[in-house]
Design a protein around this nucleic acid. Structure first.
Lengths: 248, 248
DNA sequence: CGTCTTTTTGATCCGCATCAAAAGGAGTGG
DNA sequence: CCACTCCTTTTGATGCGGATCAAAAAGACG
């Protein structure tokens, strides 16, 4: 199976699908021109490891399309996913030359890469990039902390419901759908990846999904295609306040 | 019990104990002068809640001395600590006016505060602050991800060992001690706070500390005073690679 | 149709939560 | 100095949720 994700319709930033959300979101036309000089695209097939933790990494990048995961491994093989990278998310850390995590393409993936050194130089010159990167990093920190509550205090059923809610909402906002009707989406993760995300085993994930299905919280067609008839109900199952937060 | 933490020896940034590590670390003399105009100190007693999640928060701050915690609560009362704030750590988020977490002083605490608006203005003018804040935020994100591995995949015993190792190392680097002899420190957290940090119950924390003591991994005098005879041994118990990472 | 991977389902076990109570320690007042 | 209360910590007994081990079922693909 050969991926054909290399076919980007255009290599110009103007028509880039993540133009308004990525690290370059705030750049002016002249700044984009400089970025276009140093950027290059790379694509990966589903399942490919992009970098191994500890490897030298001399680029940073934005996810253009597809999904990747960040995970950490213990010596005995236990692993925990610590980041889920969706289109527009940023990979790599300016100022660091060793990867801190394993980065794996979950689906076919296209990234917009910059060699690290030129990017760092550019960052120090154009505050728009550093500004946007700070904002994105703060958002990621919030997401990581939300996730810590899930990992530390939620039951298996609540964990699954939380993950489904996150995916359902991200998918809806990506397509700019509204959140009050039924939500329909495809799971981008295998049961194993979900287990890795939630600190569970894949058997427990499978059981809890079956239970949520049995209880009518979700409807499944096949293994991956999910319908959420009532997001409020799902949020209740996740242990979240269904009325507060994001919905209002 | 009245705290006397208000007595700062001097209010000048030059002699500030966190001068070289806080958000102002990279500031030049002229930039510090501006900061001195808008800064003010506040102190809190151990146990005091500094802000409640959801409250309006119109300042940002650096911890000068003492320890504070960030935590998140579920509706039914379950809570998870999501941040441990030590001297030089930053509190609050530029651009956001509602606190996202409960902030609680664990010990008597002094903070160096800036009203949010002037600080934001200053940030956009002086890249040194934004630069340093980005670096600090990236470090916090790394710490949060490390913590996610602890919460998601480690056993109770490993969790306790991990926390003790973190505190022991931070304490040693703060005092600029070396890491190869025995490490001695006081636990800044109650058993309950440790449980809250690690996603455990306080009973389990107590049992695992007793077990580590019984096995000679740590030595306790009283409830809070800890000696770690061999950090490598503690790191093994934490499930970490004793040779890799921070030690080298 | 057969092989390989992913997912589901079943049976059993163990780690940690829960409920309960005793044991320290610190501060207060007689 | 002791008796008292209040809070933190330890220890004990029991039960449950999720891990583990095992195998069947369902897709995916050649």
């Amino acid at each position: 199976m050969i991926s054909d994700t290399l076919q980007i319709s255009s290599h110009e930033c103007d028509s880039c699908p993540i133009r308004h959300r990525a690290v370059c979101a705030r750049c002016e036309a002249d700044e984009l021109e400089v970025l276009e000089q140093i950027k290059y695209y790379r694509s990966y097939e589903a399942g490919q490891t992009i970098v191994w933790s500890g490897d030298r990494m001399d680029f940073v990048a934005s996810v253009v399309s597809g999904i990747a995961t960040l995970s950490q491994a213990m010596e005995d093989g236990r692993t925990q996913m610590v980041g889920l990278l969706l289109p527009s998310d940023f990979v790599g850390r300016p100022g660091r030359d060793q990867a801190a995590y394993d980065v794996v393409a979950t689906t076919d993936l296209v990234m917009c890469c910059f060699r690290r050194k030129p990017f760092e130089e550019m960052m120090s010159k154009t505050p728009h990039i550093a500004e946007r990167l700070l904002e994105m990093t703060l958002d990621e920190l919030d997401a990581a902390r939300e996730w810590m509550l899930v990992l530390g205090r939620k039951t298996a059923r609540e964990k699954i419901a939380s993950l489904l809610a996150i995916i359902a909402r991200r998918d809806a906002t990506l397509r700019q759908n509204k959140l009050n009707g039924p939500l329909v989406f495809d799971l981008p993760l295998t049961r194993e990846a979900m287990a890795d995300y939630l600190g569970l085993t894949l058997e427990t994930v499978s059981r809890q999904i079956s239970a949520l299905k049995r209880d009518g919280v979700i409807v499944l067609e096949g293994k991956r295609h999910v319908t959420v008839p009532d997001l409020g109900r799902l949020l209740e199952e996740a242990g979240d306040d269904a009325d507060g937060g994001m919905l209002v």
